[in-house]
Simulated scan of single mutants.
Amino acid sequence: MNDRFDVAVAEPRPLFWYGLPHGYQQLDLDPSPEGLDEVAQRIRELPEEFRDRADQVFRLYAVVLTKLRKHEVLGCALGVHPDDGGAAAMSVITVSSLPMPGVNPKVVLTKMLADSTGTGPDEGIRPVELPIGTGFLVQSERTTVAPGLPPEGQEEPLEGTIWQGLVAVPDIASSSVITVQLVTGSVALADDYREVLLGTARTLSLTDPAAADEEPGPGAASGRTETVRSVFG
């Protein structure tokens, strides 16, 4: 990156690093104005039968970007994998960092664990051991608005059930909580997606993979961050 005087400006140092599972494509959360203008121009050049649909997708992308930035999402990736019936199973992975200035994030998450009332293996909050430290797994199924238009004569929007899993990891050094979340409408594959989520969380590192050969600092995870291959192959 260069400033207007053509002097090299260092990019901000990432707070942490992570790897993506096989089959996931990272979204650009900070597209340049030139890039957006180029996409808009390409849409205008499409045949009329495709132009409206492409324009709708482009506008949806802009809305999603705004919402992701509002929630301080640092990374977002879309995954498409074949399910047991040969159809496409879709999912979204988001990675965030939640600042907790003035408090100990580990204490906060530990209290959440202690206050959890879930009794089943898939309820409440449970600790998971990761290379970066102890994280906490939360998972649930819920009903939400589904994409698409409702059937003719129906005013209410379509609804669907999703599985949502989240791993929260306290980062004492920066007084924040790192979160990795996975959401999918393929509820029947929840067990598989849970492993994908945990596999992604296991790649979290406070050490720059490019500096893997250097001596790690205090509290930093050692070794190179590796990309996880999902259970879908």
Rank of each mutant, 00 (worst) to 15 (best):
T66C: 13
S96H: 08
V103L: 13
S96K: 04
A54G: 02
T66A: 15
R42D: 10
G79W: 01
F58L: 02
F50Y: 14
P47H: 06
S96T: 10
M100V: 11
P47G: 02
L60E: 13
I43V: 11
D52S: 07
T66Y: 12
A77Q: 07
D83W: 07
V64N: 15
M100Y: 04
A87L: 09
A62P: 00
S97K: 03
G79K: 03
L78Y: 14
V63E: 11
H81V: 14
H81P: 02
V103N: 04
D84W: 08
D84F: 10
P101L: 04
H81N: 02
V92I: 12
I43Y: 05
S91E: 08
G79M: 02
G75K: 06
S91N: 10
L60P: 00
V103Q: 14
D55G: 06
R53K: 06
L65M: 10
A89L: 07
L46T: 04
L46M: 13
A62L: 14
E48L: 03
A77H: 02
K67N: 13
V95G: 07
V103H: 08
R44Y: 05
G85P: 04
V73Y: 00
V64D: 15
A88I: 09
V95H: 06
K67R: 11
D52A: 15
T66N: 14
R69T: 05
R51Q: 05
Q56E: 15
E45I: 00
M100T: 05
K67I: 09
L65Y: 08
V80W: 06
L98Y: 08
V95S: 09
P82R: 10
L98E: 04
V95K: 04
M100H: 01
Y61F: 05
L65E: 11
R42G: 01
A54N: 07
M90R: 08
P47C: 01
R51M: 10
T66M: 11
F50H: 12
R69F: 02
V57Y: 04
E48H: 09
L68K: 06
G79Y: 05
A77E: 01
S96I: 04
D83I: 08
E45K: 06
R53A: 13
M100I: 12
A62F: 08
H71D: 14
V95Q: 00
V64Q: 08
D52V: 04
D83S: 01
D55N: 15
P99I: 07
I93C: 00
E48D: 15
A88Q: 15
G102C: 10
V80R: 07
F50C: 03
V73H: 00
P82E: 06
G85R: 08
D52Q: 15
V73I: 13
Y61L: 03
A62D: 03
L78F: 10
G102K: 06
R53F: 10
E45L: 08
K70P: 14
G75I: 00
K70F: 03
I43H: 02
D55Q: 12
A89E: 11
R53M: 12
D55A: 15
L74Y: 07
Q56I: 12
V103G: 09
F58H: 15
L74W: 04
V92R: 09
I93S: 02
D55M: 12
D84L: 06
G102H: 08
D84I: 09
V80A: 07
I93D: 00
